[in-house]
Design a protein around this nucleic acid. Structure first.
Lengths: 72, 72
DNA sequence: ATGTGACTATAAGTCCGTA
DNA sequence: ATACGGACTTATAGTCACA
């Protein structure tokens, strides 16, 4: 499992858990909608500053986005 | 405190704790010596894959590099 | 509401040096 | 052994039209 996939799955899981759309998170994080989409799918390799920005928008500590997801 | 500074201080703290030089870590992580220097000083904004690479070389979980450092 | 390909501008990451 | 700079190549940031 790549780190990009891990981050992406965590972002999506937390976002959906809050009932937010990608557009919603995009506004809150000040990142483009299609960029959020790419991060969630693991096709982007974001910098630490971008990950921090997303974590802040989601209201979770940045470390939470690096936790391995076992379900599925 | 910026996320770059946090990551940099953690990398340096753990590296020095192991008694390694930057050159030593650079070989183990397969990253350039001057780049490691930049990360530790917080002047670089590494991608998540690079941070994972450094964490692996240091033998610590990636989340450890994001923990706030309070001492000093 | 989301995925994808393509695009430009900017920054990541390498390599050469000097102090 | 480390900081820092310049020049360089490659990848990401950031955006759009369209499926």
């Amino acid at each position: 499992m790549s780190i990009r996939k891990t981050v992406g799955e965590n972002v999506r899981r937390i976002r959906v858990g809050k009932g937010w759309s990608q557009e919603n998170l995009s506004e809150r994080s000040d990142l483009h909608r299609t960029y959020i989409s790419g991060v969630e799918r693991g096709v982007r390799n974001p910098t630490v500053e971008i990950v921090e920005q997303i974590a802040f928008a989601l209201g979770v500590p940045i470390t939470e986005l690096f936790n391995e997801v076992f379900e599925k």
